[in-house]
Design a protein around this nucleic acid. Structure first.
Lengths: 211, 211
DNA sequence: TGCCAATTAGAATGGACGTTTTAGAACGTG
DNA sequence: CACGTTCTAAAACGTCCATTCTAATTGGCA
């Protein structure tokens, strides 16, 4: 390299994340990203092939950070700790959390899908996360890991905690202390290790649906 | 009226909903909406002020239908039934469900907020829904309706069931039968009417977080 | 029958955005 | 101290889209 770069790749990635987090996917125009970094738009194209690549790398970065925080706990068979780990991760990764947890990929990538390398990397990350869930279910519950059992684990560890955080993330408000209680209570009431033993302690479910 | 209209307002609204449901907010361009209806783009502007108005009305329509399905049950103090009602509503309102439950308003309206009438109507609907929650919490639990109690009820009745449906809505797959079990189990384990009595039956929550 | 408002019809306009291009500045190397 | 490479810098291009405009069509009514 012969001329020292004024801006780093991470600068542009971060700017894109912040813009999406604050204003939705369309707010992250190439010109807005450049403006926020203080660079000309051309400089983005010296580092990235396209806008889709920028957003794809941003997504993969945030997702990798998230998976790093949860997967080890899952593999250790500690689903409750994994669910609770979303909380400090979100507090420490403000923009990333909003970027990752508040956007559906379909909406983020609707204009054009990320190029192949980023797609491959994402699939890698998703498979790793999936494996961690499988391992957790195998370690926590009995061996049978059918679709429903995994869906239940993903809900308890992933979707439900995010649903608890969502209203606050959406308002941009700090996470109140009771979100931790809600997650903990949820896992106390519906353990992932939901052998028949656990549910037998609960009051019997009332009669099924009303239709 | 002197010339019979070939297209109805609802045609355009529905087209917009379907397009957003299938391809994300940006897929609902004025030209795409018109093309799907088989009308010229000019015809949209004879009925609606702007694209923001079309999306705002579409959102309000879907939201009103959703609230109609849940609010009565909430006001009757039947949170479990309200949570389960999301299921048949989603099955009977395929596009609407994807449109409403898979899109954050911030992403949908980022380019320009809906005009005042639609904003006012939405606030009306949201207040009505909020009141229903307040009524339910008052009817189910004890009288005290502090922030945490309402947040808990909203999670159990609204956000959690949606989180259970989300993966399937997102893939465009039909909702499997076990989603009903998951919602029912959740409400059996964590009743909204969570007086101290209910949680006393549960095994004591394990020690709080690990940090 | 001939008029008029409502609607269809489709082209035109202006702006925003992704991407490309061209020119110039910086810095390690020989 | 020039040279080549990497980067900054900013303007330019082409496309897409929301919105507007102009003209043609329809059908009830005087």
């Amino acid at each position: 390299m012969v001329r020292t770069a004024l801006f780093s790749e991470a600068d542009f990635i971060d700017a894109a994340m912040v813009l999406v987090a604050e204003g939705g996917p369309n707010a992250a125009t190439m010109q807005a990203i450049a403006r926020r970094v203080g660079a000309p738009t051309g400089s983005i194209y010296h580092r990235f092939d396209s806008r889709a690549a920028v957003l794809g790398i941003a997504w993969n970065t945030a997702y990798a950070s998230f998976v790093d925080a949860l997967a080890p706990l899952l593999r250790q068979g500690r689903p409750r700790e994994a669910a609770l780990a979303i909380l400090p991760w979100s507090r420490e990764n403000g923009h990333r959390a909003r970027f990752l947890l508040l956007n559906e990929p379909v909406a983020l990538f609707e204009d054009s899908p990320p190029p192949a390398p980023q797609r491959a990397r994402l699939e890698e990350l998703e498979n790793g996360f999936d494996d961690a869930f499988q391992a957790c279910v195998a370690a926590c519950g009995d061996g049978t890991s059918d679709e429903e059992r995994v869906a239940r684990a993903k809900f308890l560890i992933f979707d439900a905690p995010i649903a608890i955080l969502r209203p606050h993330l959406s308002r941009g408000a700090p996470l109140p202390p009771y979100v931790e209680r809600m997650i903990a209570d949820l896992h106390a009431a519906m353990p992932v290790a939901a052998g028949p033993a656990a549910s037998a302690q609960l009051p019997p479910p009332m009669n099924r649906a009303d239709r």
